[in-house]
Design a protein around this nucleic acid. Structure first.
Length: 711
DNA sequence: CTTACCTTC
DNA sequence: TCTAGAAGGTAAG
């Protein structure tokens, strides 16, 4: 309760997406430094420079918690409770840390490379009762301001020292200000190493992470290493970061700089109005992502291998067909060889009389892209064969073989990246699980040349993802959230009307009916598709040429469509212009509804191409980034809600931008479905009082035993 | 039109 | 043999 002296200068903004348990960041000592206050600004760091090493501890070394006496452990426990700041970093076996690489060989992938956690504990001088019994027991401790300790993390023997484990975990849950570069890695390590239930921890841990902070300040240049962050700091303020701290121990020096870096970043976040987003959204997201990584998702290797076999078969067949059609043997997957076959041997481009053949971007060679092959497919059998070949190759190499490499004991763990997307979206990598094809691909296997009988087989790339025994998948997704946010932000009356229609079955049907002036029941599937494509194209400002291409109509037709569309939804184009001009006025800074920012300096470029690109980025960022904000907040609130219901053993497995995939024991299925819908649709709670959405955000919930079959 | 990741060459 | 970059394809809006 008392812990938060909250934002030091009286910040009226009380808006909190959910209550923050942070002990407040920093006294604004270093702000004053810039504003002219010179004498009173004794920063923690400067004090440390004078007296860097605790008198009782071994010089330049860390105290190993597992080797401490009972009394020392009690003392440490007390110190941790009273600490004003705790800075920590993972140490690896080769003596490198999250802050500094030592050996050239990148060993960090190796999980067993973890050695310990190095911690620096800082005490505030202002602590009034310095005369604790514990403290006075060691006379020399009176001056102690800094204590460096090491929490060892043993190998997988399970022989972790219970004491140090409990001490560290209670530190993680305490309200003390904790700082770590790449907190996600730390949390991931703790969960796996201590064999914790990931989702039991993920609402209790909050750590300030300079990596996330620096990314928030400039998402287009995410820091990868700690030294990247230091480079950012040096640009902001070269005085604060004093590299010649009188510490001979590198790790201690790094921890000191880490603390300083976070202090500077805190000031920057405040200055750029990003502190709320950082503390209420991003910092709470980190442990959830770590938990998802540790949890993993079940994959049925048998179906995956079965798919692989069938795909291989069909690919071989297609390769053979391609060679026959071409009249020569060539590598079908090579666009270089394909180019030669298509254009030099078969001269298929001569069939396209008036039309220009698409060229490759850089080398300006004849393109063999999908669009080109589609155009050529009526003149020769080869293009169609290649198209199918490519599709199946992609499916096999990426979603069958590619996936199999990551499956261990029937479980797949991907990494969830918080700081890689400049739009603010969460990203999955190694493997990317967010681009698994949604639709089935049908394979027709020809058995025999003389026999008409053929065998059909469908491949659902999501089918191999299966729930655990006795559990069911639940997917909850926001329906067309980006479009709805566009309606909200643009205030376009027609869009608002469509999205506020409670009886709406399908928004694109409604939009089509509004646009084309017909009854919803008269809207055809083609009308709906056309509308959907135009909607997304128009939002992001595509030209009539590109629209004509995607819609397969003439340029003039596309022009007419766009004109009438923008005329019907007037608010959309004015919204785009508002985004662009705001970005121009703010020197390239553009923001989402939750203040997330992106820098787009080219918005004022004199180069037309660069400027147009920047303009599209700006508009796209506001829509996509705002949706990302809300999806993240929803994710956090769902997990925090679940944390209050310990009987409900639900696990969050995957986030696909506007969709959450969870797994839950069968008996709790209905309960979880209700929670998801309730929490995610409660936009007022989601967005807080500052953002009042003009449209509802309906969530559709589906369930099933595999990811491929959700009802 | 944007944001991503992954594969082949 | 290794690597970086080009081209292409997949997803999500």
């Amino acid at each position: 309760m008392m812990k938060g002296l909250m934002l030091v200068e009286g910040n009226p903004r009380k808006r909190k997406v959910s209550s923050s348990s942070f002990q407040t960041p920093f006294k604004d000592a270093s702000i004053k430094k810039h504003q002219g206050g010179q004498t009173k600004q004794i920063s923690i760091k400067q004090m440390m420079e004078k007296e860097p090493i605790a008198s009782h501890s071994v010089r330049d070394s860390f105290t190993d918690v597992s080797k401490m006496s009972h009394d020392d452990r009690i003392l440490l426990e007390e110190r941790l409770k009273k600490a004003s700041e705790v800075v920590m970093t993972l140490m690896y076996k080769d003596k490198s840390s999250q802050l500094r690489e030592i050996s050239q060989t990148t060993k960090k992938e190796v999980d067993d490379g973890i050695d310990s956690i190095a911690v620096s504990i800082t005490h505030s001088l202002a602590t009034p009762n310095r005369s604790d019994i514990a403290e006075s027991r060691e006379g020399s401790c009176q001056q102690l301001q800094q204590w460096y300790v090491l929490f060892p993390l043993d190998g997988g023997d399970g022989q972790n020292d219970q004491w140090s484990r409990d001490m560290f975990l209670s530190l993680m849950e305490s309200g003390v200000r904790k700082i770590c570069f790449d907190a996600q890695e730390l949390m991931h390590t703790l969960m796996t190493h201590y064999k914790l239930q990931p989702f039991e921890m993920c609402c209790k841990w909050e750590v300030l992470d300079p990596k996330v902070a620096a990314w928030l300040l400039d998402p287009d240049h995410p820091p990868i290493t700690f030294s990247d962050v230091l480079d950012v700091i040096k640009k902001v303020d070269r005085k604060t970061l004093q590299s010649d701290v009188k510490l001979t121990n590198l790790v201690q020096k790094d921890l000191t700089n880490l603390s300083t870096a976070m202090e500077v970043l805190y000031q920057q976040l405040k200055k750029h109005n990003l502190w709320d987003l950082f503390s209420s959204v991003e910092a709470k997201l980190t442990p959830i992502l770590a938990a998802m990584e540790v949890q993993g998702i079940g994959v049925n290797v048998r179906t995956l291998k079965d798919y692989g076999k069938r795909l291989r078969d069909k690919i071989d067949e297609l390769e053979d067909k391609a060679h026959k059609a071409a009249g020569c043997v060539f590598q079908v997957s090579s666009h270089v060889q394909l180019r030669q076959v298509l254009f030099d041997q078969l001269k298929l481009d001569q069939n396209l009389q008036g039309q220009k053949l698409a060229r490759t971007n850089v080398q300006n060679l004849k393109s063999t892209s999908e669009a080109v092959l589609v155009k050529l497919q009526d003149f020769h059998p080869l293009p169609k064969i290649v198209l199918e070949y490519r599709q199946l190759m992609k499916l096999n190499s990426t979603y069958v073989d590619g996936l199999l490499e990551f499956v261990n004991n029937g479980t797949l763990h991907t990494s969830w990246e918080q700081t890689s997307a400049s739009t603010g979206r969460v990203q999955s990598a190694s493997p990317n699980i967010q681009n698994i094809p949604k639709q089935a691909i049908v394979i027709v296997k020809e058995r025999n040349k003389d026999e008409m009988a053929s065998d059909c087989f469908s491949i659902w790339a999501r089918e191999p993802f299966t729930s655990q025994e006795g559990c069911t998948f639940i997917a909850a997704d926001f329906q067309s959230i980006e479009l709805r946010l566009l309606a909200h932000m643009s205030g376009d009356p027609v869009l608002l009307k469509v999205f506020n229609n409670k009886h709406s079955q399908d928004v694109f049907v409604d939009l089509a009916s509004e646009w084309l002036g017909m009854k919803t029941c008269d809207v055809t599937t083609a009308d709906r598709e056309k509308t959907k494509r135009i909607v997304y194209s128009v939002i992001y400002g595509v030209g009539p040429e590109k629209l004509a291409e995607t819609l397969a109509v003439s340029k003039d037709e596309a022009k007419t469509f766009m004109k009438s569309f923008l005329n019907k939804f007037k608010g959309v184009s004015s919204f785009s212009h508002r985004c662009i001009s705001s970005c121009q006025r703010h020197n390239g800074v553009i923001r989402t509804i939750f203040n997330r920012l992106r820098l787009i300096p080219n918005i004022n470029s004199s180069n037309f191409h660069a400027r147009s690109y920047a303009e599209r980025q700006a508009v796209n960022f506001v829509v996509q980034g705002s949706a990302a904000d809300i999806c993240k907040i929803a994710m956090i609130q769902v997990m925090h809600k679940l944390a209050t219901m310990p009987h409900l053993k639900a696990r969050l497995l995957v986030q696909i931008h506007d969709e959450l995939l969870l797994e839950v024991p069968d008996q709790h299925l209905q309960e979880l479905k209700d929670i998801l819908k309730t929490v995610m649709e409660a936009t007022a709670t989601l967005c807080g009082p500052k953002v009042v959405l003009k449209v509802p955000l309906p969530v559709s919930v589906s369930e099933g035993k595999t990811w491929g079959h959700l009802t």
